[in-house]
Amino acid sequence: MIRTATPADVPLIHTLVRELAAYEKAADEVKATEEQLREALFGERPAAFAHLAQDDESGEVVGFCLWFLTFSTWRGACGIYLEDLYVRPEARGAGHGKALLAELARICVESGYERLEWAVLNWNEPSINFYKSLGARPQDEWTVYRLADDALTALGSPRP
């Protein structure tokens, strides 16, 4: 079962984010607090949205996805960017990841959004194979660039 996250789910979402970071070998890079997630997901102007995957039998939350809207000038339409998709290891292979992606695809179709996009680490072969099995294709002609930390501050700071 897939359901929309509620404010009461924020502590669990924070835990799942930390589990995902550990899986991606970057646990020490998580800086987000529960309060930041609460504000981003449920504040006055939400910046992101989240869905949870629950086990049909136990009702236990076994995964989540967190996403936000994008806009394509070429298509003239919004899309969804999937920031995080994570299913706990003991629940993998039971269809939860596919159900989360299907929910986002449903939102795209119903809302007239024309893209559902995400990034995957190059070493994550199980996920890459899973995504390809759904018909997703890598965008090999594009390279993602990121400004963060000192580089972002240096570029964004006022000049004397």
Rank of each mutant, 00 (worst) to 15 (best):
K98Q: 13
W142T: 04
R146N: 08
T143K: 11
P7Q: 00
D84G: 01
K132C: 09
I107Y: 08
V30F: 04
K98M: 07
P138N: 08
D150E: 15
D150M: 13
R159N: 10
V87M: 05
R92T: 01
C108P: 07
A47S: 12
A99W: 01
S111N: 15
A53R: 05
I128C: 02
A94E: 10
P158C: 00
Y23L: 09
E24M: 05
R45C: 10
E125L: 11
L16T: 07
A21D: 00
E44S: 12
P7R: 01
E103I: 01
A21H: 04
E19K: 10
P160C: 07
L152E: 03
M1G: 15
E24L: 05
G95V: 03
D140N: 15
L147F: 15
V61E: 09
Y131V: 09
L101N: 08
A22T: 13
L100Q: 05
Y145D: 04
K98W: 00
L82C: 13
Q139V: 15
V87N: 05
P46N: 02
G97Y: 06
R115Q: 12
V61S: 10
E110F: 08
S127E: 04
W74I: 06
R45A: 12
E24A: 05
Y145P: 01
G112T: 01
P7D: 00
L100P: 06
F64I: 01
L116V: 03
E35M: 03
S157G: 11
A154G: 09
V144I: 12
S72E: 03
L155G: 10
A105Y: 07
E141I: 11
L37I: 05
V17S: 02
V87D: 06
G63I: 01
G135S: 06
L104M: 14
S157M: 14
G135A: 06
R45N: 11
D150N: 13
P160H: 12
W118F: 13
A47I: 05
F71M: 10
D150F: 14
A53N: 08
V10I: 06
L82E: 12
S72I: 08
E83H: 14
R45G: 07
E83D: 15
G63R: 00
Y113M: 14
A26V: 07
C78I: 07
V109Q: 14
E44L: 12
K98T: 10
L147Y: 13
H51S: 11
L16A: 06
M1Q: 11
K132L: 03
N122A: 15
G76E: 03
E110A: 15
L20R: 03
L20N: 03
E44A: 14
L116R: 06
D9A: 04
V120D: 04
A148N: 13
V10M: 02
G112A: 07
D150I: 11
S111A: 14
A47Y: 06
G43K: 00
L66H: 06
D55L: 08
Q139T: 15
L69F: 11
S157A: 13
L41A: 08
C65Q: 14
T143F: 09
V144F: 11
Y23G: 07
Y23N: 00
G59A: 12
P126I: 03
